[in-house]
Every structure is written in structure tokens, then in C-alpha cells.
Design a protein around this nucleic acid. Structure first.
Lengths: 333, 333
DNA sequence: ACGACGATGGTGATCGCTCACAATCTAATC
DNA sequence: GATTAGATTGTGAGCGATCACCATCGTCGT
């Protein structure tokens, strides 16, 4: 920096002022400093700045399984929104166990990040999180709507309700549901949205079946469901499970949507090309990530603000995998 | 740090030695320092250390579309292998254009990362990269086997050859290929592997068809192929395109594998649940990421080493989507 | 014409750590 | 018992930026 200062004929402090956009620098001074910076290929040393300001301009994102479509999209949303001012470091946890989350938080604390976003969909994660006495801003995302810490969420209740209502409107007597693991808040909320809709429509409530988000679990459960003639409509907790279900039904000779209607959740890019194309609930994960980032920024700039953003409204995407029972035309309403 | 030193009754330098695991510290001194660190909840300041050592212990990963299964898995592999000593910052580029890659590199240079891994599958990216006069270690991954810079790659030639040979062995006269965009090195290599295998088997070489990796493109191309009765076997450049193809064939009433055999590339987790289950070429992306990291570490510790690791061998996973032409039993060989 | 004030730029301390070097102490050598 | 090597610890400088504070200079109001 002193080299630049010398080259421009000013003091190091003036260079600093130019770098930080301070107001009281005359245009010609600023220009000559800028020229010197360019000539010398000078790049400010982030570490030195951090040392004195105490801010690293670095964010930590803790994710659970960044290979999944949802987390990956959120990560993208977060990172692209953060770029102009912050770099984003990631810690991807393979499996969620008791200790790994605090460990990851600890790691980021050691890196002195300015804030942390946790993509933590499991109940256990939220518990671990709220037990943490962390002194830095922290935002959770995708962990249900009622987390005890600042969070951004998708309105799973509404999404599940839309999907269930859609199937009921098509004339199905009731709707079965393959839910995600009970330890996931998102899964719980989807179950709740499904159940409430059935109840308020006066439809019978079938037993809930638990999958594990994987296509395999959807496939295995699908074989059971295929054997039950009373099953005419199934809401799946996510799209991969719906894919597994579709295949199981196809293997058992039950046609979709004539014999059984299927609705998924997430709208992964491939959902439109399942056989048949999957009616599903679209979630804007990118937007979710962006909102999480903004919430975190609010936290960083003003410690008192602790509000949780309004949940994002998902949207039902109607394709061919759901239709009236028995292939009839939909009933007039 | 001075607080810790005082608390332990030693000098700041001794604390530093304990922190860095220097040998010449007596066990009891070390213990008392450690105790002081614990009592005071002391955490070393990474910025200060960086300032004096010049190393940030931070790596940058530039990725192209981290939503895709491949990049996401690699990212996971890199990050989990790096964790004990390095944190991983990411820059995910939405689209690949001329300027965004150098810009991302520049950003990381500003963050003073110790090294950069580029998940850059496009020819243009590799060109932009080799034009860069970067003074820090840089490794490319997934950009073909012959990049002009240190890189780790998958043996696409072998993968495509395995898949093509498999189809020929089943008795197909020839194999059609839906390739990825020509601007992708991986796509080019797969085409090459396919072509060579056909040639050495003396099979006719159909025109190459270009997709764009998306299920949609596979679907659209599928409709064209379905109209051509001579098409009995298709190798797809990746799994989503195979998915689209499967649906198009189903819509046209061409059965898989009886009428047409389909083979994919990647083995995404859902591939086993396509209808029918997809025969595909498995790639170990996680391992790829890990190797990229190790290569980068070699670069960081020893500037001279510039070798490129041996490509990773992919593996054909045989499922139901490919069979003998016309549903016949496979010919004796 | 004088002092106050805002705009502009400079000086030195400081952030928390590691490095080079010096100092001390212990134990082994001749 | 003096000498020396090796182990252990301490001292002070410096990494490259920002911050608080001070010095100058022109401009303006009274």
C-alpha cells in the first residue's frame, strides 16, 4: 500500500480512503491513486483489513446433503446473492448426527465468518441449533415455519393443501400420502397440510406412510400401494419418491393417472419428463436462498432485528400424472 | 493471546508454539497453556495468522452449474476432503460466458485463497483458464483428459466405449448417440469413445445428434428417433437426456428395451427407478473431487509438480433399459 | 480583517499473530 | 569442573490495513 501511496505521491491513509470510498478525497487525487493502483497491480490485503475491522466478509453455509436438488439450489441462490460483498464458505455434512452440526459451527467460528446460514431440515438440527450459544448472526432455512430462531421457510402446509385439494377436486374420495421421514420438519408440515385438507373436506384419512425421500423408498412403498385397489390418489413428499412410485405402479400394471393419480413435491427439472409427466408442487429454492441471505444481512447490520420472513408460497404445477379417478372426466363442481 | 499467556504464566510466543504444535515445548507447559486456552475460551485469530504467514487456508471452487448432480457431488467430495485444514469458498457461475470465469478467479485472488479448483467442463472455460496468468495453484476438473493445465478427469472415452460395446454385444447392428453440447469436452470425448468403438467393430456410424444435457432435449430428439425404425440402440450423453428419450419412446409406443435399447451416462441416484431402470455408466464424482483436492494440495506444497492424475475409470451399470434387438435372446458369442 | 468551519490530507498507534534471534537452563562430554 | 550441545522459553520487530486525531488550506459570515 505504501508503494501505491508513493507512486501516487500521497500518504497511505489517502490510498485507504480511496479504497473505502470515503467522501473527502478530491477527484484528481482519487484518480491518481486509482492509476497507481492499476499500474502496480495492487490488490488490498483482505487479512490486514480483517485484522483491524474485525469483519471477514465471509459467510458460512452449513448444508446437510448438498447433492439434493433443494439444498443445491438454495446454495446457489445464497452464493449468487452474496457475491458482490461476501464470499461463501461451505460445510456439507454427510449425515446428520448429534455432534457434527456444532462442530461445523465451531469450525466457522474459528474461521471468524460474519454469519452462518444453516440448511437444516431436521428437527434434531434445529434443536442442536437453538441449544447453541452462538455469538454471531445465524439464520436457518428450510426447517419449518416455527423454528425458535431467525429462519426462512417454504409454506409446506399450503403446498400440501393445494396438492391434496387438487386431487379431491378431481373427484378422488381420498388421498394417500407418502411422507418424508418424521424427523424432518418439512415432512411434518406437509403431512399436516395434507391431513387438514382431508379433514376439512370430510374425506377419510388413510394411514400415513413414511418414506425416506429416496426413489427407492417410493418404489418399495409403491409395491404395497399397488396391491390396494382402494388407492386412487397418492401425494408424495418429494419428486424422487414419486418417481419410484410411478415405476412400481407401472410394474404392477396400474396405469397412471387412469388407475392411480400421483402428485409429487419440489418440481425437480426432470419431473416434467417422468412417465407420465409429474404433477407436483413447485418450490422456488433459489428465492429461498436469496431471502435467507437477506435475513442474515439484516442480522449482521442490526442485531436487534430477529424477525422471521414470511414463508414462500409454493405453486402447484399441473401435469399428466393426476386425473379423475377411473379415467372419468372430472366432475362438474 | 497475551491473556492466555498471562493466565498460563508464559510468554505469548510459547502460546503460539503450542498452537502450532512446535516440538520444543515441555509437556507441563503445553498442558497449562492448553488449560488456559480452554478456561478463557480463546480462539486464535485467523486473520492475524494469515497476515503474517501469507496463507489463508482457504480454497476457492469455481463451479459452472452446481445444481447438476455431477458438480454438486464433486463439490461435496472436495469440501469433505478439505475440511480438516482448509475451508472451501464457492463461486457458482450461472452461465458460462467469456468474462465470468476470469472475474471469479479475480474475486478469489482478492480473497487471497491458497488455491483454486475449477469445475469447468466447457472448452471455452479451459481456454480462458490457460490464458490466465495466474500466480496461484489452480486445478481443473471434469474438463477432458487433455487440458493444458493440471487436471483430474474421468475416462469418458472408456465409459462411452464400454456402453457402446455393451450394446453391440447385445446384437445391435449399430448404436445411435445423443451427445452433449459440442462445447463440452466431456461430451466430445464421449462422442469419440462411441465413434471409435463403432469403427473398430465395423459397424455403420450414424449421424451424431446434439442435445443440451437437459431432459427436454432428450425428449425432443427422442420424438425424431422414435420415427426411425432402424434405430434400435441409443447411447445418451447423460441420464436426464435418457429420461427424456424414454418418455418420448413411451409416447410413441416404442417399447424399451424390446424395440429400442437405451443407455445413459452418470448414474444419477434416480436412474435405477426410471421406467425401465436405466443401464448407464457410473461415475464416481465424489472421488473425482477428492482427487482434485489432492492434486491441488500437491501444487500448493510443491510448485514444480504439474502432473495430471490418471483419469478415473467409469463403470457400466447394467439394468433393464438395454437388451437384445427385437427382444431376442442375446446372440451367442 | 478575523476567527470559525468544512474539505482535504498526513501521522502514528493498533489489530493478533509468527518469525528471527537471543537468553536461560539442563545434561552430557572430555 | 569447565565446555558445549540441545532443549526450552522470552523479546522485539513487522505483516498491511484502519482508526482516531491532528495539520493545513481555502471559504465564508460578520
Amino acid at each position: 500500500m505504501v508503494d501505491v501511496a508513493r507512486h501516487a505521491g500521497v500518504s497511505h491513509q489517502t490510498v485507504s480512503r480511496v479504497l473505502n470510498g470515503h467522501p473527502n478525497v478530491s477527484p484528481q487525487t482519487r484518480a491518481s491513486v486509482l492509476a497507481a493502483i492499476r499500474d502496480l497491480g495492487y490488490r488490498p490485503n483482505a487479512a490486514a483489513r480483517t485484522l483491524v475491522t474485525g469483519r471477514t466478509n465471509m459467510l458460512g453455509v452449513i448444508s446437510f446433503d448438498s447433492t439434493l436438488y433443494g439444498p443445491a439450489s438454495m446454495l446457489y441462490g445464497i452464493q449468487s446473492a452474496a457475491r458482490p460483498g461476501y464470499s461463501v464458505a461451505i460445510a456439507s455434512l454427510a449425515r446428520f448426527d448429534r455432534g457434527s452440526l456444532p462442530e461445523a459451527v465451531e469450525w466457522f467460528l474459528g474461521q471468524a465468518v460474519d454469519g452462518i446460514i444453516v440448511i437444516a431440515p431436521e428437527t434434531a438440527a434445529v434443536e442442536a441449533l437453538s441449544g447453541l450459544t452462538s455469538d454471531i448472526p445465524l439464520v436457518a432455512v428450510g426447517c419449518g415455519t416455527h423454528a425458535p430462531l431467525p429462519s426462512v421457510a417454504i409454506d409446506n402446509l399450503s403446498g400440501a393443501a393445494q396438492a391434496t385439494q387438487h386431487l379431491l377436486d378431481l373427484g378422488h374420495e381420498t388421498v394417500h400420502h407418502i411422507g418424508g421421514p418424521d424427523s424432518w420438519l418439512d415432512a411434518q408440515e406437509r403431512v399436516e397440510g395434507w391431513r387438514r385438507t382431508l379433514r376439512s373436506a370430510g374425506a377419510p384419512e388413510p394411514d400415513l406412510i413414511y418414506g425416506d425421500w429416496s426413489a427407492r423408498s417410493g418404489y418399495e412403498i409403491g409395491h404395497q400401494l399397488a396391491a390396494m385397489p382402494e388407492v386412487t390418489a397418492v401425494l408424495c413428499g418429494n419428486d424422487p419418491m414419486a418417481l419410484g412410485l410411478l415405476r412400481a405402479l407401472a410394474e404392477r400394471g396400474r396405469q397412471v393417472p387412469r388407475d392411480v393419480s400421483v402428485v409429487g413435491f419440489d418440481d425437480v427439472p426432470e419431473a416434467a419428463f417422468f412417465v407420465p409427466p409429474l404433477t407436483t408442487v413447485r418450490q422456488d429454492f433459489g428465492e429461498l436462498g436469496r431471502r435467507a441471505l437477506h435475513l442474515l444481512m439484516d442480522q449482521i447490520s442490526d442485531q436487534r432485528k430477529l424477525h422471521t420472513a414470511r414463508p414462500i408460497e409454493p405453486e402447484l404445477v399441473v401435469r399428466a400424472s393426476a386425473g379423475p379417478p377411473g379415467g372419468r372426466r372430472p366432475p362438474r363442481r
